[in-house]
Design a protein around this nucleic acid. Structure first.
Lengths: 194, 194
DNA sequence: TGTAACGGAATGAACATTCATTCCCCTAAC
DNA sequence: GTTAGGGGAATGAATGTTCATTCCGTTACA
């Protein structure tokens, strides 16, 4: 009826983003043909170009969407004054929640991290997030809650381990239980605590 | 002279492997054109096909070469009877040594891990290595040296963290000092110890 | 009926691979 | 010592294919 049934902004745009995300994760950017994306999304190849200027613009749109969603879930309303131990638990479990809700998103972000086709905005976005994390780490180190050492390394270990956990299970098509996430969280905390 | 002066087995084959490794790391498999590889290797495009049946065969040859070298460096003459703590240190530092000597190799193996174009031999090779590590982890858990939990998760954390450390530094073009590796080793040990 | 969104065949560029040709080096005849 | 010949390695232009993107006839909605 009338104006109501119009749309959730655009059926097709979402379908294209979803299909492309999945294919990019499976086959990579260059390994995925635009008509394949169109097929999976259930639209014509030309339709993709009504919503995105190019294949490159499409991958950048996905990257930005996922990164922002990730930032929102993990950092939104962050308990800035809580003890470091609790902050870490919160952060880790929010990442776990995000990874469960959007299983492909993490792999996508890992895979496309620092690729030639990411535009300047996305590179800057990435940098801003790194800086934010870095600040938090340094503060916690100053308080004596985390081990000393280059923040880069602490962050690399935590994020790397998180991705490692996801991958180790994706490889065998197993889902991670909350208990697994809690175990991993405890392990990583013991790694970084002072 | 006679047979002696023949060659270093083949100049060109090595040049092709090296060039391809570097380009695949930078741009991925599908993002790299065969003539580009030829250019970088300083050979004609056709020459590549004298040494490898196809682009796919080339990437598989690199994968196997790197994986075997990695296995050799990390597992060769492994101190099977040493205490777990020492085994872990040995393993970690050997990985660090490998990553330092072959900076691209790690990134390559990560990137190409479980891609469609890996042949059956390479998939099997990967599986065999995983099983080996898994056995070692289970043994150490039985001895009460490592935390209980799915071996998959322990391995995922260790390998993921290792890659995370490498990447966190590659991103800023910084090299890792021995001190950094030791710090990371200590952190990871605290993560997995019982 | 007019308009905007859509589909998918058409297009031109870029690619992996091939193959006719060149190049290089070794041997042997003189 | 020189040169002619042969054979395998190397080459890169040519080939057929695949791809991102465009274009235009069709559709659906107002």
């Amino acid at each position: 009826m009338a104006t109501a049934t119009h749309q959730p902004k655009s059926d097709k745009r979402e379908a294209i983003l979803d299909a492309a995300l999945e294919l990019f994760v499976e086959r990579g950017f260059y390994g995925t043909a635009v008509p394949e994306i169109a097929d999976k999304a259930g639209v014509g190849a030309g339709t993709i170009y009504r919503y995105f200027d190019s294949k490159e613009a499409l991958v950048n749109a996905i990257y930005r969407q996922q990164k922002m969603m990730f930032a929102q879930v993990t950092l939104g309303d962050f308990p800035a004054t809580a003890p470091t131990r609790e902050q870490f638990r919160t952060f880790w479990m929010r990442m776990a929640q995000f990874a469960t809700a959007h299983p492909k998103a993490f792999v996508f972000m890992e895979l496309h991290h620092h690729q030639r086709y990411l535009d300047a905005d996305n590179v800057a976005l990435e940098q801003r997030m790194l800086d934010m994390f870095s600040t938090v780490v340094v503060q916690a180190q100053t308080k004596g809650d985390l081990k000393q050492g280059p923040p880069r390394i602490l962050m690399g270990i935590v994020m790397g381990a998180f991705v490692g956990v996801i991958r180790s299970c994706a490889e065998v098509d197993q889902t991670l239980e909350t208990a697994d996430w809690k175990l991993a969280e405890q392990m990583l905390w013991e790694a970084i605590r002072a």
